[in-house]
């Protein structure tokens, strides 16, 4: 079975190459009767038998009419997928063990595509309609297990519309990749402080509300609550109290300083990065062969988490 699916995947890779956006064409759509379609044929066979044995022209006619509807349904079912454009959308990074929700945009270039189903497995498909010259977005669910890039298998897109007698389907690879951060693991960090002294590490990092810094001239847009009314009454003009945010001492989060299994260390580091960011603390992340920071803020956090997620992985793709 696995050899078969490998063969199938290789064949599909050639036939429907991986792309962010795929337009379903005759090369990529397959079609076969469903179980219901086979049952329908059996019913037609019974009607034909009745027609032959009773020499009944109307029964013949009905059998042929339904048979022709059956044939026409092939075209309609096929057409319901043909020309449909699938495009993978943005996916937010997740933590290992969480469910990713990549979504796929289905877009019609001309006619409406009704009841198009999308999913990783046949059992769990999401059904939606694509309006004519419009689009719809389907959110899928994807369970993550390990950190790193999560690349799902090919996506099945199928349609049985209009009669359910045929199923037209395709396997597309929309190049969906979800970045999975390590699962954050609660734990205590060994206290390693970056830099030497405490006070040197504390720096003014911009306008904030922590520390009174002095009086500055009022500008339009400054909050009236911070006006220094006493100074104004003394005729010194409009002045505002200026506050600055004061950062604590830099934190050093080092892979080497931790003990245990590498995955566990990454998980702990992940937790520490999150904790430090929550506390709005500057920190430096040290991984073997790579040092990030010191820095703070969402961007730094994201860079660090990305490094943790991809640690040890071959440099597969540029940061998305």
């Amino acid at each position: 079975m696995s050899r078969f699916s490998r063969h199938r995947d290789r064949w599909l890779d050639k036939r429907i190459p991986r792309a962010k956006s795929v337009v379903l064409s005759q090369r990529s759509i397959f079609i076969l009767p469903t179980r219901m379609g086979v049952a329908f044929l059996i019913v037609l066979g019974l009607i034909l038998l009745a027609a032959i044995n009773y020499q009944n022209s109307l029964a013949y006619a009905m059998c042929f009419l339904l048979g022709s509807v059956y044939a026409v349904a092939i075209l309609h079912t096929w057409r319901n997928l043909a020309g449909l454009r699938l495009q993978s959308g943005r996916t937010h990074p997740i933590f290992a063990g969480e469910q990713a929700h990549p979504w796929v945009r289905l877009e019609s270039r001309s006619r409406a595509h009704q009841a198009v189903a999308l999913g990783w497995q046949r059992a769990a498909m999401t059904l939606d309609d694509v309006p004519a010259r419009g689009a719809c977005e389907i959110e899928l669910a994807l369970q993550s297990e390990r950190r790193g890039w999560l690349r799902p298998e090919r996506l099945r897109v199928e349609s049985r519309f209009p009669l359910g007698l045929f199923v037209a389907w395709s396997w597309v690879d929309l190049d969906i990749a979800v970045l999975v951060y390590p699962r954050p693991l609660e734990g205590e960090a060994p206290t390693v402080q970056g830099g030497e002294g405490d006070e040197e590490g504390a720096r003014v990092v911009g306008v904030g509300a922590d520390d009174y810094r002095g009086l500055v001239a009022w500008q339009r847009g400054d909050s009236l609550q911070r006006l220094h009314w006493k100074a104004y009454s003394r005729g010194r003009g409009l002045l505002v109290k200026d506050f600055a945010a004061l950062a604590g001492s830099d934190l050093l989060l080092s892979f080497d300083a931790l003990g245990g299994d590498p995955e566990a260390r990454l998980s702990l580091l992940c937790h520490l990065v999150l904790a430090a960011s929550d506390a709005q603390q500057r920190f430096t992340l040290q991984l073997p062969g790579r040092t990030l920071g010191p820095g703070e803020g969402a961007e730094h956090q994201e860079r660090c988490l990305q490094a943790l997620a991809l640690h040890g992985a071959p440099a597969e793709r540029a940061a998305a």
């Binding site: 962010k20 495009q87 993978s88 959308g89 943005r90 996916t91 937010h92 945009r105 998305a320």
Partner: peptide, 10 residues
């Protein structure tokens, strides 16, 4: 325009 609306980095 679609790329800016659908790609994750935007």
């Amino acid at each position: 325009v679609e790329a800016t609306r659908t790609q994750p980095q935007f």
